[in-house]
Amino acid sequence: MHRLREPPSALAQPVKAFIHYLASEKRHSPRTCDSYQRDLCRLAGWLGESGVAGWADVQTQTLRRYVATLAREGLNGRSIARHLSAIRRFFDYQLREKAVTDNPAVGLKAPKSGRRLPGVADVDQLARLLDAAPEDPLEIRDLAMFELMYSSGLRLAELVGLDLPALDLRGAEVRVLGKGGRERLLPVGSRARQALEQWLSVRPSLADDGQPAVFVSRRGDRLSRRSVQARLTRWGLCQCADQKLHPHLLRHSFASHLLESSGDLRAVQELLGHADIATTQVYTHLDFQHLARVYDQSHPRAKRGARRADT
């Protein structure tokens, strides 16, 4: 993508006002505001280079050309949909301010892109990685985190947001707050429980007084998402993993391995905290891929692509 020039003031100033509105009136997080600003500034720069003087001059056909530009630059359907969501909301704000007379983004849809299947680790490989013995308090913490993510299918945000009262090791369960503020109670496997007990026994040597977070850094404060990602990558390198490890890999592996064994899609949906079962159904495709490989390797007449010679 070539670097866009700074948009003219007539395009840039309304974006700044909108971001201020999101931050001050709607109380959106800095991260959300940054995302809106980045997407809208990209559009404003493109409009400026295209000769559009102001937001009132933007038509639906203009935005269709912009969507086509994003697609040519390699953005997938999900990323373009995020752009369109920001644009629609910005024009709604502009309508409220009476700066435009309609919302040209209404009804525009992003192009569909092939759904990327999540990566899954092999059961035996995960067993080798999680059976490695920790050598210091930080590694004891790391093993407890990784065991819990694989045992209970936690999202990264759910893991780092976990507080001590949410853990019930006697009852072998953990209470997490997921997307949309939805709370769910999850079982904790025996190996994860053992790893957590070991971590909680050494946690006081690291944690600040009064710190509620289950997982803390060497400085004693709540562990960040980036730190968890870095530590999992390090763990994989130290244990010579066959693939790069990342938090979502553990969650995806939890879901796929559970579905392979149980076949209960609805139960997996509940454990993952998916509001829509369609989100969970991606794991049925993974499961079929596994079954298809076994079929191809094992069935005496499994050469499905071969043609009979006597036909």
Rank of each mutant, 00 (worst) to 15 (best):
A306Q: 15
S253G: 03
V58T: 07
V120T: 10
R203Y: 14
R218S: 12
S151T: 08
F288L: 09
R42E: 11
L271K: 06
T69L: 15
C240P: 00
H290T: 10
V123T: 08
E270W: 07
P137E: 09
R115D: 03
L200A: 15
S261Q: 15
D57R: 12
R116I: 06
R155T: 11
L177A: 02
P14K: 02
L108C: 07
V214Y: 04
E147H: 09
R89M: 13
Y36S: 01
P8G: 09
I80D: 04
D276W: 02
E260D: 11
R31S: 12
F146Q: 10
D124M: 02
D264M: 07
R175V: 10
A241V: 03
R82H: 12
L250N: 13
P7T: 03
Y21E: 06
T62N: 12
M1C: 04
H299W: 01
R65A: 10
A306M: 11
Q37S: 13
R203D: 03
L223G: 14
W55H: 08
A81K: 13
D264T: 09
R226Y: 05
G161K: 01
A278C: 00
Q239T: 07
P165E: 03
D131E: 10
R225K: 08
G77L: 05
H20M: 03
L156D: 00
R72S: 11
A105W: 07
L169A: 06
G273I: 05
L117N: 07
P212E: 09
L200W: 14
A192N: 11
L169Q: 06
I140Q: 15
D122Q: 08
S205I: 10
P30M: 04
L286F: 12
R175E: 14
E183H: 08
A302Y: 01
G114N: 08
R266E: 05
R78C: 03
I140F: 09
D136A: 05
W46S: 10
M149Y: 12
R225T: 11
S298F: 07
A53E: 14
G161N: 07
G180W: 06
L143K: 14
L47S: 04
L206S: 05
L138P: 01
R5I: 05
D34R: 09
D122W: 05
L223D: 14
G236N: 15
E197D: 13
A110D: 10
G77T: 05
R27L: 08
A241Q: 06
Y295W: 09
D142G: 11
A110K: 06
G77C: 02
L47C: 09
W55D: 03
E173A: 06
H299L: 00
K112Y: 06
R155G: 10
D208Y: 03
R78P: 00
W235N: 00
Y36Q: 09
L271W: 07
L164D: 03
